[in-house]
Amino acid sequence: MTADKPATAGRLSILSLASSNLFGLAAIVAVFWAIFVSLTPNIASSFSLFAISRSLGIDIVVGFSTMVVLATGGMNLAIGSIGVCAVMFAGYLMQELGVPSPLALLAALMLGAASGWANGVTIVTTGANAFVVTLASASLFFGAMLITTHGTPFEGLPPELADFGRMRWGFVSPMLALALAIGVALAILFHFTALGREILSVGANTRAARMSGVRVGRAIVVAHTLSGLLAAVAGLMTMARLGAAIPAIGRDWLLPSFLAPVLGGTLLSGGAVSIGGTILGALLIATLRAGILTLQVANFWLQLFLGLVLLCSVALDRYRGGYLERKSARVRA
């Protein structure tokens, strides 16, 4: 089946099955690196590596944002909208109201979490499909952002933000470190806390979780709140990279947000997440993007590639998981 199902899989399967998936993904990434480096050695320059690490950090957090709702068997199409709302709110607070940057960033994170919370509460109370609710709220949030800001970017942000965006630790951006730190926190959540494991239980079998006394509604709301918070984090990271709060942030997150966790072996049906896999999935995206950029090949290849990679990976996963799937389908029948 899938890669490391943290709270659940046995040690044996972590060693064998799970890592075969991760190793496979890592091998694909390595092959692409080999190809790109042999074509344009520039890609391994220290600046290029820095740029890649920076966008990788953002891709990882975007992937996490979807991963935490996939854990419950739901989805969140509003990640881009929540991200840009947080960004524009932070920009407004800092530039127009002169709020100190730590406070403004905190407020923006709160807004992201609140938006995610609203999604979760709507899903739980209406019992509606997460797809419809977050599709609608994506439109709602984005519309609200445009109405209030008229789509004008905030470019006079405090310099310390852009400084953070440019900061280099060797050839690595601290943003990658931030993303990895979030990964560690999520690993602790899903491995070692009652809440995280309840979320996974809800995703694996909602009925069984409910009958075991798990508060299903709360688990779903928490997952969506976390997703909103992570979307805000990803947005603010992008803002720091660009040095400005721009309404276009988040518009192209939808595909990568699903791509990273799904490539990494997180189940769409819920109940299992793979943090390492999501990181590797994001690395594949960042690699492809960087390679195509430095090769100066037309950008359309990226779109085409990402789509095909997604299709192939889920198809492969389906055939690999086919055995267990068939078995349980028969049991259910």
């Binding site: 595909l255 290849w301 990226l302 299709l311």
Partner: peptide, 21 residues
């Protein structure tokens, strides 16, 4: 047997890529 959402999300990206190409 893959979820229709994921399939069409992926093909959307492919169609867009060809379009841009």
């Amino acid at each position: 047997g893959i979820d229709g959402f994921i399939v069409t999300l992926a093909t959307a990206s492919v169609f867009d890529g060809i379009n841009l190409g």
